[in-house]
Simulated scan of single mutants.
Amino acid sequence: MSKILVIAEHLGGKLNLSTARAVSAAAAIKPEAIDILVLSDNVDTVAAEAAKIEGVSHVLTIARAENAHPLAAVLAPQIAKAAAGYSHVFAPSTTFGKDVLPRVAALLGVAQISDVMSVEGTHTFKRPIYAGNAIITVEADPNTVVVATIRTASWPAAATGVSSGQIEAISVDVALPSHTRFVELQQGKSDRPDLQGANKVVSGGRGVGSKENFEIIYKFADKIGAAVGASRAAVDAGYVPSDLQVGQTGKIIAPELYIAIGISGAIQHLTGIKDAGTIVAINKDGEAPIFEVADFGLVGDLFKIIPELETLV
C-alpha cells in the first residue's frame, strides 16, 4: 500500500493553501496514509492548521532553529531522512516546492516528476509539457520512492474541519550544510487576496499603457474583491513588479473568474490560466489570441469599458 508524505508550505506561521491542494492529489492515489511534514523553528501553529485538513493521518514536525527560514539546502536533507518508509513525497509546484523538492529527489537518487495534474495510478501521472500545449503520461519506477511536485491549479484544496491528524514531533540525524544562509526576505505587502489562491483575478497587459495607467486595474480589482495579476509584457515594461506575473514563467493560477485587460494572449500567458473557471477578455484588438480562449470578450477601449463595468458592480 502507498504511504504519502506531503511537505507543508508555510510562511509567517500560516499554512499555505497549496498544501491542501497537494493533499487532494495524494488522496487521488487512495493511499494507506497521508502524512504532512512541517519544518520550522516554531511548528505549533502551522501543525495545528495542517492537522485540520481532511484525510491527513499524522502531522510530523521537525522544530530546529535552522528551519526558521525555508532554505532548500537546509530543508532537503531533513526531508530526505524523514521520507524513509514512504512510497511518495509530494510538495506543491510553487516557488517553494520547485526549490526544495529537486534537492530531495537528488538525495534519494530518483528523478522528480514535475507539475502532476492528474493521477492515473499509484505510479502513473499526467503532466503538461510544451507550455501546456501537450499532456504526457509518465510512469515512475514502482521500486523507488516517487518524488513529485503538484500542479496546484489542477487540484481543489482538500476540505478542512476539526483536528483529525495526530501531531507528532520527530527528529532526524542529519548534518546540515553551512554554505547557505538566510540574508533577507523582501515581499510586497497588500490587502488584496493572494494571487495564487484568489477566486477572482484581474490582470493587465501591455495594452494598459503605463505604470500610472495600471491604477485602473488596481481600482477595478478592489471594486470586485479580486487579486491583481499581469502579463509578462506588463512586467517587462515596468508597469508592475514581477511577483504579479501570470504565465509559464510566472504564477500558474486557477481562479473561478479571470479578467484579462489589455492582454493579447501569448501562449506563455495562456499556460498560466488554462485551468481558470471563466475567462473574460477586454482588448481593443478583436483578433487578439486571448479571445480564442475567452468565455466572454469585449472589444473596445479598456479606459471606457472598465468605468462602465464599475457602475454595474
Results as ranks from 00 to 15, higher is better:
M1Q: 13
I4S: 09
I4Q: 04
H10Y: 09
N16F: 05
T19A: 06
A22N: 05
S24Y: 02
S24W: 01
A25V: 08
A26G: 13
A27H: 07
A27Y: 01
A27C: 00
A28D: 12
K30E: 14
D35V: 03
D35S: 08
S40G: 12
D41R: 12
D41H: 13
A47K: 00
A48Y: 04
A48R: 15
A48N: 14
E49P: 07
A50K: 03
K52H: 00
V56L: 11
V59A: 10
E66I: 04
N67T: 10
H69A: 13
L71R: 15
L71Y: 11
A76D: 03
P77D: 09
A84N: 12
V89C: 10
T95A: 14
T95M: 11
F96M: 02
D99A: 12
Q112Y: 00
Q112F: 01
S114T: 14
P128F: 05
P128L: 06
Y130D: 11
G132N: 07
I135L: 13
P142A: 03
T144E: 11
V146W: 09
V147S: 12
I150N: 04
R151K: 14
A153K: 03
S154W: 06
P156Q: 06
A159V: 02
T160P: 00
S163C: 10
S164L: 06
V172M: 13
A175I: 08
P177M: 02
P177D: 03
T180K: 08
L195E: 01
G197V: 06
N199L: 12
G207I: 08
S210M: 10
I216R: 01
I216E: 03
K219A: 15
D222M: 03
A227F: 04
V228F: 09
S231I: 11
D236H: 10
S242M: 02
S242Q: 14
D243K: 10
D243I: 09
Q245R: 02
V246F: 07
Q248T: 05
I252W: 02
I252F: 12
A254R: 05
P255H: 08
E256N: 14
A260M: 02
S264V: 07
S264C: 08
G265E: 07
Q268A: 12
I279H: 08
G286S: 14
E287V: 04
A288I: 00
A288M: 06
A288D: 04
P289A: 13
I290Y: 01
F291I: 04
L298M: 15
L302C: 10
T311E: 14
L312N: 06
